[in-house]
Amino acid sequence: MPAAGTLRASPALWAGLAFAAFGADVALALTGAIGKPLALLLLIVPTALLYRAMRLAGGSAAGGACQPKGEVQRRYVRRVMAFTAAYLLAFALQALVAAQSHPPVPLRAALGLLPALAILGVFWAIGRLIVEETDEFMRMLVVRQVLVATALTLSAATVWGFLEAADAVPHVDAYWIAVVWFFGQFAGAVANRVTYGSWGAL
C-alpha cells in the first residue's frame, strides 16, 4: 500500500478527483440541481485539481517535483493564474450587480463578456507558450496536446449538436465547449506520455 505522501504526489489520483468533480458539476447543472452561474463558478474546483495533476505529472517527468521550471513555463503559469483570478472576479461582479437590481441589457452584456474575456486570456497564454518555448521537443508536446484536445472537443460538440437537434439530449450552453477543451488537455497529456514518454509542459 503506497504511503500517504506518495499517493498525494500521484498525478492519476488528482486527475481522477478532477474528473469526478467535473462530472459532479456537469451532472448537477444538467439536472437543474444548481443554477448555471453556480455551476460555472464551481468549475474552479476541478480546474484546480486538474492543474495540480498536470503540475505533478510535469514534475515527475522532469526528474522530480523539485525540478526547476524554465522561465517560459513560469511566465505561462503566472498568466494562467492571473486570468483565473480575473474569471473569479468577473463572476463575483456579475453576481453582485444581478443581485442588486435588474441591470439594462448593455450592462448585462458587458458583465457577461468579462468572464469570457478571462477564458480567452487563457487561450492567449497557451498560444504565447507555444511561441515563446525554445525547447523544440516541449513545444511539440504542447502542440500535440492542444490538437488532441481540439479534436476531442470538436467531435464532442458536433455529436452533441446533432443529438440535440434530434431532441435526444438536453440543451448545453456553448461555453461548455471551452470547458471540455480544457479537460481535453489531460487526454492530450496522456497521449504524449504514451507516445513520447513525457506528459508535456502545459
Partner: peptide
Amino acid sequence: LSVSRQSVNAIETGRYDPSLPL
C-alpha cells in the same frame, strides 16, 4: 544544450528525432 531533460531522454531513446539545428 539549454533544453529539458525530457528532450534529451526522448532523443536518446529514439522516441524523438531532433531538428537539424538541434
